[in-house]
Amino acid sequence: MKKILSICLVLLTSFALCACSSEEGKETNNQTKTEEKIYGVGETITYKKDGQERVHFTVNSVSNTSDRNEFADSQPEQVIIIHYSYENIASEEDVYFSSVNFKVIDEGGNVCETYPASINTYPQTAPIGTKSEGEEAYGLKQQSSKIKLVVDLDYFGNKVTYELPIQ
């Protein structure tokens, strides 16, 4: 009987300790999320892996365009062009940023899609020691004076957020 009581006591203590440590972990995660930095035009993000700088990423500008594609399925309220640049400092794999790395959100909180507008600069893969730049066009569902841009730096959840005025 004493053995069973001892085992039950050990199990209860273990569950209580696990529950406490789980709550502490949640608080730490919430604090990290609220302290996330929001970046602006011209600010460079440095992606690090294993303590080493690998990639620099910068949004250079966001501008309106009057360009509309008569064959587009969507009829957005506003079309913008995002101009960005990146540099492969020490990534063994070639670096390439495009719309698959981006999530654009207009002032109404709508997640927006790419739009087939004319762009002038197409991103290229960048091996170590090289730079590239690119442009992406997006159709906004609501007229906006600024957007939120979430950039996925490595496809593994390392994301940064920009708040960008539209020029």
Results as ranks from 00 to 15, higher is better:
N64A: 06
T65L: 07
S66T: 14
N69E: 06
F71M: 10
S74F: 07
S74K: 13
Q75S: 14
P76T: 04
Q78L: 06
Q78P: 15
Q78Y: 13
I80F: 09
I82G: 04
Y84H: 09
Y86I: 07
Y86G: 08
E87F: 00
N88V: 08
A90D: 15
A90C: 08
S91L: 11
E93D: 15
D94H: 10
F97S: 04
F97A: 11
S98N: 15
S98D: 15
V100T: 12
F102P: 05
F102H: 12
I105N: 13
I105M: 07
I105L: 05
D106G: 08
D106N: 09
D106R: 03
G108F: 05
G108M: 03
N110E: 12
T114I: 11
T114G: 15
T114F: 07
P116W: 09
A117C: 14
S118M: 12
S118V: 11
S118C: 03
Y122A: 00
Y122C: 00
Y122W: 15
Q124Y: 10
T125A: 13
A126C: 09
A126Y: 01
A126I: 01
I128A: 11
I128C: 03
G129S: 12
S132A: 13
E133A: 14
E133F: 02
E135W: 01
A137I: 06
A137N: 09
L140P: 06
K141Q: 14
Q143S: 13
K146N: 14
K146Y: 12
I147V: 15
L149R: 00
V151R: 02
D152N: 14
D152R: 04
D152A: 06
L153A: 07
Y155E: 08
F156H: 14
F156Q: 12
